[in-house]
Design a protein around this nucleic acid. Structure first.
Lengths: 254, 254
DNA sequence: GTCAAGTAATAGTCTGACTAATGAGATGGG
DNA sequence: CCCATCTCATTAGTCAGACTATTACTTGAC
C-alpha cells in the first residue's frame, strides 16, 4: 500500500513516478477503478467532459490527460457527438503495467489468473533455458542476492518479504535471457507472482520446497545446463500450480 | 502505407482509430519518430513546452496530450524545472502496439528482430498446442479462411497479400488458445511476421514449403493433436528462422 | 418512404493566465 | 573558508473560457 514507494528498484516508468501526487494521477486511478469495479460497464457513456470536470472538481485539461491515458490503454474510446465510451475488456491492453497493478488490487478474476499462470508455464522454462546459456556473472549475482533474501525471509517467517524476493528472483532470471521481449514481460510475471502470493496466504500456505528449487535453478544456470534449468523451472511451476489449485489442464499429456 | 485503413479487421485500439487525422496524432507520430530516428537521443532535454508549441505550430494542450502519450509509453519523463527528457530504450514499453508499428517503419535493429523471433519460437509452439486442445469451430474456420487466402495469394504471386494472410493465420491461432495473455501478444507476433516479410523480400524470397506446413497445422488442430501441432509449429519456425538468416542459437540440443 | 439539408451535442483545439515543484545561486552564520 | 538556509528563476502542472470540427439526429422537401 506504500503509494509513493521510493525504492530505486521500481523500474516501471508508468505511474507512481517519484514526486508529489498530481491531479492527473488521482483522476486516472479514480476513473480506472470505476471501470474496473464495474461502476462504468462496457458500453457505458460517461458524462460530457464539462459535466465530469464539475463532478470531479478538476479542470478540463487535467481530465483530458487522464482520458488520454485510459484511451491509450484501450479502456476508453472517444468520438465527437457520441461521447466517451467504456470499451469491453477484450479491447484493453491487459499487459500494460498500470493495468496489471490495478487489476491486482480489485479483481482476482479466475480466468485472468489462469491465463497468467499458463503463460508463466510457457515462458519461464524457456527463459531459464536461455539464462543458462547467456547469464552474465552480474545476472547470476542478482539471482543469488534474491535467493539469499528469500532464505532470510523464510527463516524470519516474513512471507511478504519472501514474496518480494521471489519476484526479484524471477525478474532477474528474465533479465538474464538478454531477450528484450521477455524482459518486457517482467510486469506480467511479477503480477502473476504477486497474485499467487495473495491467493496462497488466503490458504495459510508456506513456501515449502519452493526455496530449494530456486537454489537448484541457480546451480543449473551456473553450470550452463540449459535443459536442466528448463526442467527445474517446469517442476517449480508445477508445484506452484498445485498450490494455487490450478490443476493445469493437461499441457503435457501423461 | 494506407494510413487510414478502414478495414474492420484492425482491432488494435491504439492510434489509427477511424476518423480524420487530428493534430494530436500527427504530433505524437512526429515526436516519436524524432526519438526513434535518434534526432532526440536518450537523455536529450526537449525544448520547453511553450517553445516547442511555437516550433510545431500547435497549442499547448495538444502538445501536452502528445507528451502524455509518449510518457505512458516510457519514452519521455517530465519533471518541473528539469524539462521533458528522452528516456533510454531500456525504459520503453517495446510491446506497445504503436511503438511496435513505429519501430517497424524505421529501425530493423538486429537485436530486437532476433528477440522477437526467439519469443515466437517459445510462444507459438505452445500456442499451437493449446489451440489443438481448445479451438472452437469458429477458431478453426478463421484459420481455414486465412489459409485459403494464403493459397490464393501464393497462386497469384501476391507476396504482400500472402504476408497479410499469414499474419491473420497466426493471430487466429493465438486467439484459439483462449488465453488472454497470448492474445495480448498478437501485436508482437504480427509485427515479427511483418518484419520477417520485409527482410525476406529484400532477399527476393518466396513462400516455399511454408504453405503446406500451415495446412498441416490446421490438420493437427482439427485432429485435436496438441503434441503434433506443437511439433509442426516448431518446424515451421525453424524454416522461417533459416529464411531470416537467424541460425537459432541452440534452443534444443541435437 | 427516401434523401437531403440543417441543427444540436460533443470531443478536439486554441489562448492565456496562474500554481507548484525544484535546482541553482545568493545570502548569512559558524 | 565551509556549510546551512533562503530566495529566485525555470519549468511542468493546472485552471478557465472560448472557438472549431465532427457527426448523429431531426426536419423538411420531393
Amino acid at each position: 500500500m506504500s503509494d509513493q514507494s521510493n525504492d530505486p528498484a521500481t523500474q516501471d516508468g508508468s505511474l507512481a513516478a517519484r514526486g508529489k501526487p498530481r491531479v492527473y494521477q488521482n483522476t486516472v486511478k479514480r476513473l480506472a477503478f470505476s471501470i474496473l469495479k464495474g461502476d462504468f460497464p462496457a458500453g457505458h457513456v460517461l458524462p460530457p467532459e464539462t459535466d465530469l470536470c464539475d463532478k470531479l472538481g478538476i479542470s478540463r485539461s487535467a481530465l483530458r490527460e487522464s482520458v488520454r491515458a485510459l484511451k491509450d490503454k484501450g479502456m476508453l474510446i472517444a468520438r465527437p457527438r457520441h461521447g466517451t465510451i467504456v470499451q469491453p475488456r477484450s479491447a484493453w491492453h491487459l499487459l500494460d503495467a498500470d493495468l496489471l497493478n490495478w487489476s491486482m488490487e480489485v479483481d482476482p478474476d479466475a480466468e485472468f489468473v489462469f491465463s497468467l499462470f499458463e503463460a508463466r508455464q510457457v515462458i519461464e522454462p524457456a527463459a531459464a533455458r536461455l539464462s543458462a546459456m547467456r547469464a552474465t556473472s552480474g545476472d547470476i549475482e542478482a539471482m543469488e542476492a534474491a535467493f539469499a533474501d528469500m532464505s532470510a525471509a523464510k527463516a524470519a517467517g516474513d512471507f511478504q518479504r519472501f514474496n518480494e524476493a521471489d519476484i526479484a528472483f524471477h525478474l532477474a532470471l528474465l533479465r538474464a535471457t538478454s531477450n528484450v521481449v521477455f524482459i518486457q514481460l517482467s510486469n506480467m510475471i511479477g503480477t502473476a507472482l504477486a497474485i499467487a502470493f495473495r491467493m496462497s496466504i488466503a490458504r495459510a500456505h508456506e513456501p515449502g520446497e519452493s526455496l530449494s528449487q530456486h537454489g537448484d535453478l541457480i546451480e543449473m544456470i551456473r553450470a550452463r545446463d540449459p535443459i536442466g534449468a528448463e526442467n527445474v523451472m517446469t517442476r517449480l511451476l508445477a508445484v506452484a500450480g498445485i498450490d494455487l489449485g490450478l490443476s493445469n489442464r493437461g499441457p503435457s499429456k501423461s
